Simulated scan of single mutants.
Amino acid sequence: MTFEEEYEKFIQHHGSTRKGESLRRLLDGHGYGEKLLLKKVWWPAFKNFDFLYPEYAVTDMRYGTYYLDYAFIPDPELLQLDLEADGFGPHVQQMDRRQFTDQLNRQNFLVAMDWKILRFSIDEIKENPTRCIQYLQLLLGKYYGVNQPSNMITLQEREVLRLCLKLGKPITIKDVAYHLKLHRNSAQSLLRKLAEKQWILPLKRDAIRVRAYKANESKINQLLV
Protein backbone atom coordinates (compact mmCIF):
# COMPACT_ATOMS: atom_id res chain seq x y z
CA MET A 1 0.00 0.00 0.00
CA THR A 2 1.19 3.52 -0.81
CA PHE A 3 1.02 6.44 1.60
CA GLU A 4 -1.89 8.01 -0.29
CA GLU A 5 -3.92 4.80 -0.18
CA GLU A 6 -3.27 4.21 3.51
CA TYR A 7 -3.89 7.85 4.39
CA GLU A 8 -7.26 7.84 2.63
CA LYS A 9 -8.29 4.67 4.48
CA PHE A 10 -7.04 6.17 7.75
CA ILE A 11 -9.13 9.34 7.41
CA GLN A 12 -12.20 7.46 6.17
CA HIS A 13 -12.03 5.07 9.10
CA HIS A 14 -11.88 7.85 11.68
CA GLY A 15 -14.55 9.83 9.85
CA SER A 16 -16.90 6.87 10.10
CA THR A 17 -16.56 6.88 13.90
CA ARG A 18 -17.11 10.65 14.39
CA LYS A 19 -20.08 12.97 14.54
CA GLY A 20 -20.83 16.58 15.42
CA GLU A 21 -17.92 18.92 16.09
CA SER A 22 -15.42 16.06 16.10
CA LEU A 23 -16.38 15.11 12.54
CA ARG A 24 -16.42 18.74 11.40
CA ARG A 25 -12.91 19.25 12.74
CA LEU A 26 -11.68 16.19 10.90
CA LEU A 27 -13.27 17.22 7.59
CA ASP A 28 -12.62 20.98 7.73
CA GLY A 29 -9.69 21.47 10.09
CA HIS A 30 -7.47 18.63 8.96
CA GLY A 31 -5.53 20.04 6.05
CA TYR A 32 -2.22 20.46 4.26
CA GLY A 33 0.08 20.71 7.28
CA GLU A 34 -1.43 17.76 9.11
CA LYS A 35 -1.19 15.51 6.06
CA LEU A 36 2.36 16.67 5.38
CA LEU A 37 3.40 15.66 8.90
CA LEU A 38 2.31 12.09 8.23
CA LYS A 39 3.70 11.97 4.70
CA LYS A 40 7.17 13.37 5.47
CA VAL A 41 7.71 12.26 9.07
CA TRP A 42 5.42 9.54 10.41
CA TRP A 43 5.05 7.34 7.32
CA PRO A 44 8.78 7.16 6.43
CA ALA A 45 9.54 6.20 10.03
CA PHE A 46 6.80 3.64 10.68
CA LYS A 47 4.89 2.73 7.48
CA ASN A 48 1.59 2.48 9.39
CA PHE A 49 -0.84 4.60 11.41
CA ASP A 50 -1.27 2.27 14.38
CA PHE A 51 -2.45 3.94 17.62
CA LEU A 52 -2.71 7.31 15.83
CA TYR A 53 -5.85 9.49 16.09
CA PRO A 54 -6.38 12.64 13.95
CA GLU A 55 -8.06 15.75 15.39
CA TYR A 56 -8.21 14.11 18.81
CA ALA A 57 -10.43 15.82 21.39
CA VAL A 58 -9.09 16.44 24.90
CA THR A 59 -11.52 17.96 27.38
CA ASP A 60 -10.54 20.51 30.00
CA MET A 61 -13.54 20.50 32.35
CA ARG A 62 -13.05 24.19 33.17
CA TYR A 63 -12.13 25.68 29.81
CA GLY A 64 -13.60 23.45 27.11
CA THR A 65 -12.23 21.06 24.49
CA TYR A 66 -8.85 21.13 22.79
CA TYR A 67 -8.29 19.38 19.47
CA LEU A 68 -4.87 17.88 18.81
CA ASP A 69 -3.58 17.46 15.25
CA TYR A 70 -2.71 13.87 16.17
CA ALA A 71 -2.75 11.84 19.35
CA PHE A 72 -0.50 8.79 19.49
CA ILE A 73 -1.77 6.50 22.26
CA PRO A 74 -0.26 3.00 22.23
CA ASP A 75 -1.11 2.69 25.93
CA PRO A 76 -2.80 5.54 27.86
CA GLU A 77 -1.14 4.47 31.11
CA LEU A 78 2.32 4.59 29.57
CA LEU A 79 2.37 7.19 26.80
CA GLN A 80 0.06 9.83 25.33
CA LEU A 81 1.74 11.94 22.67
CA ASP A 82 0.41 15.11 21.05
CA LEU A 83 1.84 15.66 17.55
CA GLU A 84 1.38 19.09 16.01
CA ALA A 85 2.16 20.65 12.62
CA ASP A 86 2.37 24.43 13.06
CA GLY A 87 2.26 26.81 10.12
CA PHE A 88 3.62 30.35 10.26
CA GLY A 89 0.49 31.84 8.74
CA PRO A 90 -1.61 34.96 9.29
CA HIS A 91 -3.38 33.46 12.32
CA VAL A 92 0.01 33.14 14.05
CA GLN A 93 1.43 36.46 12.92
CA GLN A 94 -1.73 38.33 13.95
CA MET A 95 -2.33 36.47 17.21
CA ASP A 96 -3.55 38.78 19.99
CA ARG A 97 -2.63 38.53 23.68
CA ARG A 98 -5.67 36.44 24.60
CA GLN A 99 -5.01 33.94 21.82
CA PHE A 100 -1.35 33.77 22.80
CA THR A 101 -2.35 33.05 26.41
CA ASP A 102 -4.83 30.39 25.26
CA GLN A 103 -2.06 28.64 23.33
CA LEU A 104 0.13 28.50 26.42
CA ASN A 105 -2.72 27.35 28.65
CA ARG A 106 -3.54 24.56 26.19
CA GLN A 107 0.02 23.26 26.28
CA ASN A 108 0.27 23.63 30.06
CA PHE A 109 -2.95 21.66 30.53
CA LEU A 110 -1.69 18.80 28.36
CA VAL A 111 1.63 18.65 30.20
CA ALA A 112 -0.17 18.69 33.55
CA MET A 113 -2.26 15.73 32.33
CA ASP A 114 0.94 13.78 31.54
CA TRP A 115 0.88 14.27 27.78
CA LYS A 116 4.12 14.46 25.82
CA ILE A 117 4.17 17.07 23.06
CA LEU A 118 6.12 17.31 19.82
CA ARG A 119 5.50 20.39 17.67
CA PHE A 120 7.03 20.78 14.22
CA SER A 121 6.85 23.82 11.97
CA ILE A 122 5.58 23.12 8.47
CA ASP A 123 8.79 24.71 7.17
CA GLU A 124 10.87 22.17 9.11
CA ILE A 125 8.68 19.27 7.97
CA LYS A 126 9.22 20.30 4.34
CA GLU A 127 12.89 21.24 4.52
CA ASN A 128 14.31 18.94 7.19
CA PRO A 129 12.02 15.94 7.78
CA THR A 130 14.97 13.79 8.89
CA ARG A 131 15.43 15.93 11.99
CA CYS A 132 11.72 15.61 12.80
CA ILE A 133 11.94 11.83 12.47
CA GLN A 134 14.96 11.77 14.78
CA TYR A 135 13.10 13.70 17.51
CA LEU A 136 10.12 11.37 17.16
CA GLN A 137 12.22 8.22 17.40
CA LEU A 138 14.25 9.66 20.26
CA LEU A 139 11.10 10.17 22.31
CA LEU A 140 9.51 6.80 21.49
CA GLY A 141 12.78 5.00 22.14
CA LYS A 142 12.65 6.14 25.78
CA TYR A 143 9.45 4.16 26.28
CA TYR A 144 9.87 1.16 24.04
CA GLY A 145 13.47 0.80 22.93
CA VAL A 146 12.15 0.21 19.40
CA ASN A 147 11.24 2.41 16.46
CA GLN A 148 8.13 0.67 15.17
CA PRO A 149 4.69 1.31 16.69
CA SER A 150 3.67 -2.14 15.44
CA ASN A 151 6.10 -3.60 18.02
CA MET A 152 4.67 -1.59 20.87
CA ILE A 153 2.63 -3.39 23.46
CA THR A 154 0.02 -2.53 26.06
CA LEU A 155 0.47 -3.09 29.78
CA GLN A 156 -1.82 -6.12 29.56
CA GLU A 157 0.28 -7.62 26.76
CA ARG A 158 3.39 -6.93 28.81
CA GLU A 159 1.90 -8.94 31.69
CA VAL A 160 1.36 -11.88 29.34
CA LEU A 161 5.05 -11.75 28.42
CA ARG A 162 6.05 -11.71 32.08
CA LEU A 163 3.82 -14.74 32.64
CA CYS A 164 5.53 -16.55 29.75
CA LEU A 165 8.91 -16.14 31.38
CA LYS A 166 7.63 -16.90 34.88
CA LEU A 167 6.00 -20.21 33.91
CA GLY A 168 9.05 -21.35 31.99
CA LYS A 169 6.98 -23.45 29.58
CA PRO A 170 4.76 -22.93 26.53
CA ILE A 171 1.78 -20.80 27.49
CA THR A 172 -1.84 -21.59 26.65
CA ILE A 173 -5.09 -19.66 26.40
CA LYS A 174 -6.14 -21.28 29.67
CA ASP A 175 -2.99 -20.01 31.42
CA VAL A 176 -3.60 -16.42 30.33
CA ALA A 177 -7.32 -16.52 31.14
CA TYR A 178 -6.64 -17.88 34.64
CA HIS A 179 -3.73 -15.65 35.64
CA LEU A 180 -5.13 -12.42 34.18
CA LYS A 181 -8.77 -13.25 35.04
CA LEU A 182 -9.92 -12.87 31.44
CA HIS A 183 -12.59 -14.50 29.31
CA ARG A 184 -11.17 -17.19 27.03
CA ASN A 185 -11.83 -15.11 23.90
CA SER A 186 -9.97 -12.11 25.34
CA ALA A 187 -7.02 -14.31 26.30
CA GLN A 188 -6.93 -15.81 22.82
CA SER A 189 -6.99 -12.35 21.23
CA LEU A 190 -4.07 -11.21 23.41
CA LEU A 191 -1.97 -14.20 22.42
CA ARG A 192 -2.71 -13.76 18.73
CA LYS A 193 -1.71 -10.10 18.81
CA LEU A 194 1.56 -10.91 20.57
CA ALA A 195 2.25 -13.66 18.04
CA GLU A 196 1.63 -11.23 15.16
CA LYS A 197 4.21 -8.91 16.70
CA GLN A 198 6.56 -11.92 17.13
CA TRP A 199 6.88 -11.52 20.90
CA ILE A 200 5.70 -15.13 21.21
CA LEU A 201 5.90 -18.02 18.75
CA PRO A 202 3.02 -20.43 18.03
CA LEU A 203 3.37 -24.17 18.59
CA LYS A 204 0.91 -25.91 16.29
CA ARG A 205 -1.12 -29.01 17.09
CA ASP A 206 -1.53 -29.61 13.36
CA ALA A 207 -1.34 -27.61 10.13
CA ILE A 208 -4.03 -25.20 11.34
CA ARG A 209 -4.59 -25.31 15.10
CA VAL A 210 -2.23 -23.74 17.65
CA ARG A 211 -1.91 -25.66 20.92
CA ALA A 212 0.33 -23.21 22.79
CA TYR A 213 2.84 -20.38 22.44
CA LYS A 214 6.46 -20.16 23.49
CA ALA A 215 8.31 -17.01 24.44
CA ASN A 216 10.60 -15.33 21.95
CA GLU A 217 13.02 -14.91 24.83
CA SER A 218 15.72 -12.85 23.15
CA LYS A 219 13.17 -10.21 22.20
CA ILE A 220 11.26 -10.28 25.50
CA ASN A 221 14.41 -9.95 27.61
CA GLN A 222 15.31 -6.73 25.78
CA LEU A 223 11.89 -5.31 26.68
CA LEU A 224 11.58 -6.38 30.31
CA VAL A 225 15.07 -5.66 31.61
Rank of each mutant, 00 (worst) to 15 (best):
M1S: 12
E4C: 10
E4W: 02
E4N: 13
E6Y: 08
F10H: 13
I11L: 10
H13G: 14
E21W: 03
S22T: 02
D28M: 04
H30A: 03
H30C: 12
E34F: 09
L37Q: 11
L38M: 03
K39E: 13
W43Q: 09
P44Q: 05
A45Y: 14
A45M: 01
F46A: 03
K47F: 15
F49Q: 14
D50I: 13
F51N: 00
A57L: 13
M61G: 10
M61V: 14
T65A: 14
Y67W: 13
Y70T: 08
F72D: 11
P74A: 09
D75I: 15
E77L: 15
L81H: 07
L83S: 04
D86R: 04
G89R: 15
D96A: 13
Q99T: 08
F100A: 12
T101N: 10
D102G: 09
L104E: 10
R106T: 15
F109E: 13
L110Y: 13
V111Q: 11
A112M: 01
A112N: 12
D114G: 01
F120H: 05
F120C: 08
D123K: 12
E124V: 06
I125C: 07
K126V: 10
E127D: 05
E127L: 07
E127P: 08
N128A: 06
N128K: 07
P129Q: 07
R131I: 09
R131Y: 07
C132V: 14
Q134D: 06
L136N: 15
L138C: 10
L139P: 08
L139I: 06
L140Q: 01
K142Y: 00
Y143L: 02
Y144P: 00
Y144R: 01
G145A: 03
G145L: 09
N147F: 11
N147C: 02
N147E: 04
Q148I: 02
Q148N: 02
I153F: 13
I153A: 10
T154C: 00
E157V: 07
R158E: 12
R158N: 10
E159F: 04
V160T: 05
V160P: 08
L161C: 07
R162F: 09
L163F: 11
G168Q: 14
K169T: 00
I173Y: 06
K174W: 02
H179G: 04
N185I: 02
S186E: 08
Q188Y: 09
Q188W: 09
S189F: 01
S189L: 06
S189M: 04
K193C: 06
L194N: 05
E196S: 04
W199I: 07
L201I: 00
K204H: 08
R211D: 08
R211L: 14
K214E: 12
A215E: 06
N216I: 02
E217F: 11
K219R: 14
I220R: 05
I220P: 11
Q222K: 15
Q222P: 08
L223Y: 00
V225E: 09
